[in-house]
Design a protein around this nucleic acid. Structure first.
Lengths: 172, 172
DNA sequence: CCAAAAGTGTTTTAAATACACCCATGC
DNA sequence: GCATGGGTGTATTTAAAACACTTTTGG
């Protein structure tokens, strides 16, 4: 009582995972009286995105047994939570196409290959690297970083999102 | 308690307007504690669409003074209801582009000019008639009716939506 | 020099846009 | 016959899609 929905979501996320500052977005409100056999519970579901799962606290208490899954092979969930996950994935897929939302799923600096892999995984389909680079460039959301990532192979240019926080791309 | 959110929305709509069978869609849940100075109220807002405002009961009781406005010249509203209306309009605009949602705003049979006028009003920008016809035809949502509308001028072909109920258009 | 990942252009196809005149009817 | 709204086509521009080779580095 007396709390913003967004704040409550953030508080819950923090309590369950220890995460602060994750991207949060209201998803949908689920209120089917039969969704929980014990009581009529109305849940305002939120979508959270994080770049680095290693910063999530190990599940304990009522979250014990929580695990990470590839989004393409999500385990069956209790209650109507699979439906929620489906809504969340759909929302994320569509936002990828017209926003910089990927910023919330990547480190501050990243390579084009990382970005491409992220899109391919979430959208569930292969992506043509050249067309993808062109399309992303046209959205004008990225800034090239001076440094580059060095490793076993040819160095990769590093990019970052120009804006931190959601930025929608106009498409008239 | 014990009621689906959609059913509750339908019940409220019916109580306030006498309407049954309107298109309904959950919009967003507003829960800012300061949105109502008297108490912390969480409202699950719905969007309803109707084709014919003349079937709406005259406002009475707590709805007394309710009026119709052009969407482009919406009056200021109490509480955060202007924000709700803004969300609703945004949702409607985007659904016009990739669904048959206009079926809920038109009579069963209608002319292309009516459809075009509807789009122009909601989107708030002029529409090129020829390009619009092509675009709508490509979505393949309409069926041409055998009859036509006769009146003061050249008769207009009548169309209806092939499907009653929301139908999303694939765009990969 | 080899393996591995990064980077890059062109052609084709489809969709969006811009644009103006003729048609059918009632009065 | 004229006013009114209904109906139609083409050329241009822009975006999407398909497609394969060269480059750079570490080992």
């Amino acid at each position: 009582m007396g709390e913003l929905l967004d704040d409550a979501a953030r508080r819950e996320l923090s309590a369950s995972t220890g995460l602060d500052r994750a991207y949060l977005e209201q998803l949908f409100t689920f209120g089917d009286p039969s969704r929980d056999p014990h009581a009529h519970v109305v849940s305002v579901a939120y979508l959270a995105l994080i770049a680095d799962p290693s910063r999530v606290n190990a599940p304990r208490g009522k979250y014990l047994g929580g695990k990470w899954y590839e989004v393409s092979r999500l385990a069956p969930l209790a209650y109507d939570h699979s439906l929620m996950a489906e809504y969340a994935l759909r929302r994320l897929k569509s936002k990828l196409e017209y926003s910089n939302i990927a910023y919330a799923l990547l480190p501050r600096e990243f390579t084009f290959a990382q970005l491409e892999e992220l899109y391919a995984k979430i959208l569930g389909r292969p992506i043509d690297r050249r067309n993808f680079r062109r399309r992303i460039a046209a959205m004008n959301l990225l800034r090239k970083q001076p440094s580059s990532r060095r490793g076993a192979h040819r160095p990769a240019a590093l990019y970052s999102f120009a804006q931190h926080g959601l930025q929608l791309v106009e498409m008239l």
